[in-house]
Design a protein around this nucleic acid. Structure first.
Lengths: 210, 210
DNA sequence: GTCTATACCGCGATAGAC
DNA sequence: GTCTATCGCGGTATAGAC
């Protein structure tokens, strides 16, 4: 046997692969913004030339597209999973309140697990077809979430003196704002964060019985 | 008397002035992002050439600087005003709870009144000295807000089972997330919005006695 | 798979005429 | 106050050698 690795296996030893480039790109996009980040910046970060980067990806926008897809897939799964806590048909074993509670918690966990990609998603403005498509997919998720809030209000398990659309925007505005400061390697674990967010959202700031 | 306007007064009839340019710039920066917006875009929006824009402003960054200053001045005033509801020295007539409540409401109102400038501020990443200075001033405000939350918890008027820093970040994360969707010309007035945010924040989602 | 070299374009900003 | 014209730079992306 020789000392060379199996030729049949996927190799790429000398340099980087697409995934490496993508991770570095997402980090840079988040640090400086997508438009303010050049391929030259990315190449410098990876220690190669611009041309080497273009060997792995078709275009700069290609990197953005992949990152947004990761975030959207995760968030869509979060809403789906929590909604399928039971749901089924007309009236199931789970209440809308329970599903809303689970969705908020799961959204926080997904956000923490895919923080860089989700951060990028939340900053997209719709400057290109790629960004517009991402915004469209985001809107679909937002509509589902608003429906869940409306349902919980109709079932009488949450207050109904405020518009469900408004409540939904405030709740998930709180969740989304986490990308501005939360770091998974900090003192607060993702599960602790999810618990704090849900507790504050559902119970408010009132002093608790000890 | 002639039909020409007073020559001594500030005039500029044929074209635009610095304020016009600034308003248009802030809107474009928010729509597409600062880096993605070129002076040519701005000139096109105003119906003039790039050179005409540079007649009114020294640089593109000059526009950003002015916008960030507007937002920061407003927000600093909001925290100051609400904190000075009484405060004074050691123990005054107002509790930290009351001051926190007033600060949240006032922050929402300022955000609504200066929505474009505040939106821009909240998207700044620190890419240049101008942006870094803005982030520094933001941080000062954030520290004051966190102190207010800590004080209210110490006085026993809000729950103390969660870290004040965490609570502060969540509350003002909710407030800041308003820039992502709120429009003052929509169905919700700034005062209604401030009432909804404070109510949801302080009282939570629990059904209310009717 | 990575390199050098380069085409091509749009950017921010300036000079000087009107 | 706005224009035309232009500079110099850095952007994305490509071609072809190694």
């Amino acid at each position: 046997m020789t000392d060379t690795p199996p030729v049949g296996a996927r190799r790429g030893r000398p340099g980087h692969d697409r995934e490496t480039v993508l991770r570095a790109a997402i980090d840079l996009f988040n640090e400086r913004g997508y438009d303010a980040t050049s391929i030259a910046d990315l190449a410098r970060e990876l220690g190669v030339t611009k041309s080497a980067v273009f060997h792995h990806v078709a275009s700069k926008e290609d990197l953005l597209s992949a990152a947004l897809d990761e975030a959207l897939t995760g968030l869509a799964a979060a809403t789906q999973a929590a909604a399928a806590t039971d749901s089924g048909s007309t009236d199931s074993g789970s209440t809308a309140y329970e599903r809303l509670h689970a969705t908020v918690a799961e959204s926080v966990r997904i956000l923490a697990a895919h923080l860089p990609a989700v951060t990028l998603l939340l900053r997209v403005r719709g400057n290109s077809p790629v960004e517009q498509e991402a915004l469209r997919r985001r809107r679909v998720i937002d509509v589902e979430l608003a429906g869940l809030v409306r349902e919980a209000a109709r079932e009488g398990d949450i207050r109904s003196d405020l518009e469900p659309e408004l409540v939904s925007r405030l709740i998930f505005g709180t969740v989304n704002s986490l990308v501005e400061w939360y770091r998974p390697d900090g003192p607060v674990s993702p599960d602790d964060l999810a618990a704090a967010v849900t507790s504050l959202t559902f119970e408010g700031l009132a002093p608790r019985a000890t």
